[in-house]
Amino acid sequence: MSERRKIHPVVTMLALPSLLLLYLPLVAVAVYSVNSARIGLVWEGFTLRWYRELLHNEAMLDAARNTMILGLVSTAIATVLGTLLALGLARFPWPKPIARTLDVIVDLPVVTPDIIFAAAMVIAFSMLRSLWAGFVPGMLAMVIGHVTFQISFVALVVRSRLVLIGPTLMEAGRDLYASSFYLFRKVTLPLLLPAIVAGAMLAFTLSLDDFVISFFTAGPKSNTLPILIYSAQRRGLSPQIHAISTLIVILTVALVLGLERFTRYRKA
């Protein structure tokens, strides 16, 4: 623990605009999502009407369903692949040059700007289409796109936990007569599980956070919520969009809080 330092009040005053910049817009959206005025931004009283209307908006419900399916399916695939990747990279005596190459490949999605990532996806899918004509942009393409960047983040989280756990506990397990399988079941997996859950939550959060990659690969039929909001924005502001945006923010808050709970590690 680093020692705490008193800071100058000026620093605090300088830090305040940051929070305003981050939260003022979000708060405005939340406030206007419960404003009963249909047109305009004048406050006319509290209502949950826009939230109720969401439930009858077929396009909105469809997009919400797509967003959830996309998030859950891609997270499930990425969690499995990312965890295997982390296990395979962290605990084996890879020769240095190979280890470095693998690291670069695994880190690539983390450092690639999302627009270039999306461009690569478009190219990947047009390659895929030339091999298999039935492949059209849509849900499958979006899932593939999301898994591709999620894998890296899951691997990153799980791997850093593996490093944190260190090799000694595994040796202790071996020393105490554990077979490979028993050791994995009783030591490795329980110690790793919080990191795997955290990795999965991060993957889901990132899927929910993504717009650019979905936008490039969605195709005409499968809308996600961000795509829907983006195209609705063209037609101007609407209270229903306020409402769905607020719900997305609330979901994000829940995910972030959950994430923090699982990324803490207690060392014995």
């Binding site: 405005a28 717009f211 924005q233």
Partner: peptide
């Protein structure tokens, strides 16, 4: 504080842009 910083980071860009559009609209 850290959570407060991380939440906007994890909030969809479109939502945040939309929020700015709202905040910067004429009546506000």
């Amino acid at each position: 504080w850290l959570s407060l910083v991380v939440v906007p980071m994890c909030t969809n860009l479109v939502v945040r842009t939309y929020a700015w559009e709202l905040l910067l609209s004429p009546q506000l």
